[in-house]
Amino acid sequence: MEYIIIIISAIFVNNILLSQFLGCCPFLGVSNKLSTAVGMSGAVCFVITLATLVTYLLQYYVLVPLHIEFMQTISFILVIAALVQMVEIVLKKVSPSLYQALGIFLPLITTNCAVLGVALIVVTKEFTFGGEPHMLNLAESVVYAFATSVGFGVAMILFAGLREQLALNKVPKAFQGIPIALITASILALAFMGFSGLV
């Protein structure tokens, strides 16, 4: 039951893009076409889940026992950068077709704040899923990370669909490009606010 609450909360109620503003750069940058949005979401989903697993272990088995929590930011970003690089190499060997599909998006993910953001949220924030406020354990963290990245995908793909339609319309000159995208995102965020109070 608790896992279902985590999943619904992370996908809809606290959507990472539309209510927490993490990962806005790819959200506005590569959401012009539906196909690129799908590719980006897939790559992000993969990396967020993996990165959260690794950084969680790093936090509780290396940083905390050695009392060097202040190294959190530096070590997390290094781990994420290395991980992205590794994923790229492994994918190239194991599944060239998936590599082809995700390839160009992977290097961009290192500087996607959603990845570092989720890794940091998991080890610093207390959650109130299912009663008492508590820090997430490993399984919950991974589920939370996965659900969050699915939420990223949902928002990203919805938004790309909207922008594809938008491209067919005549937009005033000053609004072209990012401004109209932001206003569209605002309406989408308004729609997602309807989910608040669900969990």
Binding site: S19, F175, P179, L182, I183, S186, A189
Partner: peptide, 20 residues
Amino acid sequence: VFVLAPGAFLALGYLIVLFR
């Protein structure tokens, strides 16, 4: 709503238009 998420997108969108 302007303090919440949708207001952020809306305000920034219109601010960029104004700036342009």
